[in-house]
Structures are given as C-alpha cells and as structure tokens.
C-alpha cells in the first residue's frame, strides 16, 4: 500500500468550487447533481410545457470579517417559509468539505434534523478537533460538520442538508442546498 503521496482529495474539488460554486461537484467521479441544480419535475402524461425549471436563489448570508469562531449566525434559506432555518459558522480553523474562506472552515447547514425535524438550534459543538451538530433533542442524532454533515451517530435518514456557499470579496452567499430539508418534498416549494 502506498501512502507516499499525502492525499487531500477534496483539494481539486475545492479549486473547482472557488472557480464556480455552481459547478461544484461533491463527489468526484459522479456526473451527479451540481450544487445548484436545475430541478425539472416531469409528471408522466403531462405536457412538457408544464415542467418547472427552478434554481436556488443567490442570497447574502454573512460577511467573513464579521464571523466569530464557533459562533453560528442564523439565516433562512432558500426562502422564509417553514423549515428554512439555517446557520453559517466559522469553525475555528477546522477545515471542512465545502468550507469557504481562507481556512476553508466556513460552512452552513440546516438546523432541522433530517430524522423527524428536531430543532438543533444551539447544538453546534466544537469537541477537540471535531465539529459536530447535535445531539438532536428528540432522538440524539449527531452530525459531522467537517464532512458535509454526515451522520456521526443516530437515526436520521440522510446527512444534515448543507447550504452551499460562495464568497465574493468579504460577502458570503448561499447558492444551493445538498440534501432535502426536513418536512419538504422539494427544497424549492411554491410559496
């Protein structure tokens, strides 16, 4: 087994992200959904004209210079409807998948547990080198915020949805979501 080359597998992805977040692919080797996906719903039997084409809004959520280490800042995304509570946080130098900023430690996630919607406001935690969201007050799920919100331990059916970020100068923009927000059947719902 060769381990001569110290790998940083997301470095390439990261470079790509910095070029254009909208082209950001989380999983190398897949041709899967781009960060800000174009979502087409085609109901069988209906005319194509009825297909909706939707994109995530580009929304300013914070300024890099104003984020304090390990102190989440709340915002709503992708709209102000139910189940849109999110936060952006600078994780005190803990480099993260999808992280922005010079240390790649600025990330944003939904607050709603993807198990049954438990609110995890106030549950951001820095534990040693780890950055965790949880335990969820309802059934104790925890999520790893350095690894795209993957479940650490618990009952959720998917990762905690990650809000994709773009930096423009000092401004941080939310530009998409990976994963379905709890309680929605699509992230972008008609108001």
């Amino acid at each position: 087994m060769s381990d001569t080359k110290k790998k940083d597998e997301t470095a390439a992805d990261h470079g790509r992200c910095m070029l254009n977040r909208r082209q950001f692919l989380m999983y190398s080797g897949t041709t899967a959904v781009a960060a800000s996906t174009i979502s087409i719903s085609l109901f069988p039997g209906e005319a194509q004209a009825k297909a909706r084409v939707v994109t995530y809004p580009r929304m300013k959520v914070a300024r890099l210079s104003e984020l304090k280490d390990n102190q989440p800042v709340d915002f709503n995304y992708p709209d102000d409807g139910p189940n849109s509570q999110c936060f952006v946080v600078k994780m005190d130098g803990a480099k993260a998948g999808g992280g922005v900023g010079s240390q790649r430690d600025v990330v944003a996630f939904s607050y709603l547990c993807t198990h049954q919607g438990g609110p995890m406001n106030g549950k951001y935690q820095a534990v040693g080198e780890h950055r965790v969201l949880g335990q969820c007050p309802l059934h104790l799920s925890t999520y790893d915020l350095t690894r795209h919100g993957i479940i650490v331990s618990g009952q959720a059916y998917q990762s905690i949805p990650q809000v994709l970020l773009e930096v423009d100068g000092d401004d941080i923009y939310a530009v998409g979501i990976m994963g379905l927000l709890f309680g929605r059947n699509e992230n972008l719902m008609d108001a």
């Binding site: 790998k7 935690q125 949880g134 335990q135 690894r147 650490v152």
Partner: peptide, 18 residues
C-alpha cells in the same frame, strides 16, 4: 494511511458520545 484520513466525504472520526 487510509484515504479517509484527509478527505471530507466518507466516514467520520468524531466520537459517538457527544
């Protein structure tokens, strides 16, 4: 070293008792 050591996609090394 496993490839998981320095990437962000697979596994998690966070403790289970947080």
């Amino acid at each position: 070293e496993s490839k998981y050591k320095h990437e962000f996609t697979h596994m998690s090394f966070a403790p289970r008792n947080v």
